[in-house]
Structure formats: structure tokens, C-alpha cells
């Protein structure tokens, strides 16, 4: 896109609607600049007219209402219908149903994280993850969005406009990434104290890489390999973590918090907020409230000590 401010606006942002990577986002991007420059042109026109009205030399006397009718009535009535028609055509494409047999991803907003369930034609292939969505490049996928508590809004600016996650509704969005990469998404409907920390990552990758990733996610959790990790698993099972979290292949099957079966493979922790590494993981396990006050996950400062938190972190980190 040659249009734009040049250096004024950063086009390289991981979360920018001004760096579209899908046809849908690209259309809206073009429309934005058309409207922007159209607005600037009309504004400048009106201002020049205003200056002329005040300071111009040899202004002719106003001829009745002609200027007001031309500028106030005719100009909008002529300029806006094409915009409306264009927007309609564009909107039709944006809300078009995905092709038959498209991959379906069910996203459920929670305060304050995203549950992501992959639905395949064969139900045995389904799996659940959190705060991270992987897509095959160049393929349209169907995203069904709903909420478990308050209203959230699912938004990946580089891929598409947003759609609200509404309790009691399943809203549909079609996503199609034209190039591989990682794109940041964020909750766009105000949802409480940690609304600001309710992000997620979309990873678009080639078909084979996507299949390999999906196959890895389908597997149950691996057995801990080190002594520390084995201690961590024992603590994980005995300290109440299982009430809220699922780790497939272990007795942990809670449904309140994110599925942790492959948490070690994810890029971020705490819903797109922090980088995923063992130190951060241990700190979050020990005192989640320090990082996200108000979240459902309690502080465990009084429940267990730092070494226990570190061993749980070591176990979770192995869950690639």
C-alpha cells in the first residue's frame, strides 16, 4: 500500500490493522485509507472555502442557498451511496460462511484467558488448548466465538475485524492468513480488571507444520523425565491444581482454568502477557495474584514453598 503517512504510523506492529496479512483485513485497510484521504480532502475544501469566505478578495455575493445546498446536501448524497455500496460488497465477503469442510476452532472467552478447542471432522482428533491459535497458511478456517462469563471480543487486527464473544451466542468469523508469521490478538471488549492482559497469539504456518503441531497437541501429556519434574507432578496432583486444570493422561481434569496438557509448547503465559520460561512459570504458580490481581487463580504463597513451585514449573515446562 503506497497510501499512508509514511513514517507517522508504524506498519510493522504485531497487532496492527495497518499491516494486514489476509484479504479481509487488506480490504478494510484500503477502505480506511480511501475514507481517510477522502475526509482530509473534503475537510481541506471546506476550510479553504471558510478562509476564502473570511479573507478572500473580490468574493462574489452569495447566490441564495446554492452553496449550502451543493455542499451540505448534494455533496454527501453523491459521495456516500458509492461508499455504502462498496461497504456492503465488502461486508458480504467478510461475513461469508467458510467453505465446506473448513477447520473449525471454537474460542471461548473467560475472565481473563481464551479457551481454544480444535474441531476436526473426526471427533477423535479434537483437542483443547489456550491463548494460542495455530492456523494453516492460505486456508480459511471457521472460528466460533462465545463466552463463559462476561462479554469479550475476539480480535486479531492483522487478520480480520473483531467479533464479540457473547454469553449465550455463538458468533462466527472466518480467518485466513496469507502469509506465515505470529500475530498478536487481544480482547477488545472491556471485560474487567485484567482486560488489558487478555491477549493471545495466532501462529500461521504451512500445512505440514500445522499438521505436525496438531498431532503433537492431540497426544496426552508426556511422563516427567527428571526427578524434579516427577516431584512437580506429585505436587501438581496433590496441591489442588487438578481442581481447575486438565493435563490429559493424568487424573487432572479440571475445567475452570486453561488446559495445560502442552503448556510447555506455548509461547506466552497468563494470556499473552508474559514470555513462557521456567522462572516466570514458577513465579506465576506461587503468586498469580501478584501478576494478575483479580484472576480466578489464587495465590499459593501460603500453600507451598518456592522449591515446590519450581518443581511444578519444571514439570509443566516438560509438557511440550
Amino acid at each position: 500500500m503506497a497510501l499512508g503517512f509514511g513514517g507517522c504510523v508504524r506498519f510493522d506492529g504485531v497487532q496492527s490493522a495497518l499491516a494486514p496479512v489476509s484479504p479481509e483485513a487488506d480490504h478494510v485497510f484500503s477502505l480506511s485509507w480511501i475514507m481517510f484521504w477522502g475526509s482530509v480532502a473534503i475537510l481541506v475544501l471546506v476550510m479553504v472555502l471558510g478562509f476564502y469566505a473570511v479573507f478572500g478578495r473580490r468574493r462574489p455575493a452569495l447566490d441564495g442557498n446554492k452553496m449550502v445546498i451543493a455542499g451540505g446536501v448534494l455533496l454527501p448524497l453523491l459521495a456516500l451511496p458509492p461508499l455504502l455500496v462498496y461497504a456492503l460488497a465488502l461486508g458480504d465477503g467478510l461475513r461469508a460462511p467458510p467453505p465446506e469442510g473448513a477447520l473449525r476452532i471454537e474460542v471461548t472467552g473467560h475472565q481473563w484467558w481464551w479457551e481454544v478447542r480444535y474441531r476436526f471432522p473426526d471427533a477423535g482428533d479434537d483437542f483443547t488448548t489456550a491463548n494460542e491459535i495455530h492456523l494453516p497458511v492460505g486456508q480459511a478456517v471457521e472460528v466460533l466465538v462465545t463466552s463463559n462469563d462476561v462479554i469479550h471480543s475476539f480480535w486479531v487486527p492483522r487478520l480480520a475485524g473483531k467479533i464479540d464473544a457473547m454469553p449465550g451466542h455463538a458468533n462466527r468469523l472466518t480467518l485466513k492468513a496469507e502469509e506465515a508469521g505470529e500475530f498478536r490478538g487481544q480482547c477488545a471488549e472491556f471485560c474487567g480488571a485484567q482486560h488489558t492482559h487478555m491477549a493471545f497469539v495466532v501462529v500461521a504456518k504451512p500445512q505440514e507444520a500445522f499438521e505436525a503441531w496438531a498431532a503433537g497437541q492431540r497426544k496426552p501429556a508426556r511422563q516427567p523425565s527428571s526427578t524434579e519434574a516427577r516431584r512437580g507432578l506429585a505436587a501438581f496432583l496433590s496441591q489442588g491444581c487438578v481442581e481447575c486444570h486438565t493435563v490429559r493422561g493424568t487424573p487432572a481434569s479440571g475445567r475452570i482454568g486453561p488446559d495445560l496438557t502442552h503448556v510447555g509448547s506455548r509461547r506466552t503465559l497468563a494470556a499473552g502477557t508474559l514470555d513462557n520460561n521456567s522462572a516466570t512459570l514458577a513465579a506465576l504458580i506461587r503468586d498469580y495474584q501478584e501478576f494478575k490481581p483479580g484472576a480466578d487463580m489464587p495465590s499459593h504463597k501460603d500453600a507451598f514453598d518456592q522449591p515446590t513451585a519450581e518443581s511444578i514449573a519444571a514439570y509443566l515446562e516438560e509438557l511440550q
Binding site: H27, V28, S32, M35, S39, G161, K162
Partner: peptide, 13 residues
Amino acid sequence: MLAIAPADFQYHD
């Protein structure tokens, strides 16, 4: 600009 629904999907909120 906000009144154009497809564009508003990006601008909203």
C-alpha cells in the same frame, strides 16, 4: 468512518 460496518469491525472499541 465508524459508521461503515465492515471498517467498524476493525475500529470498534
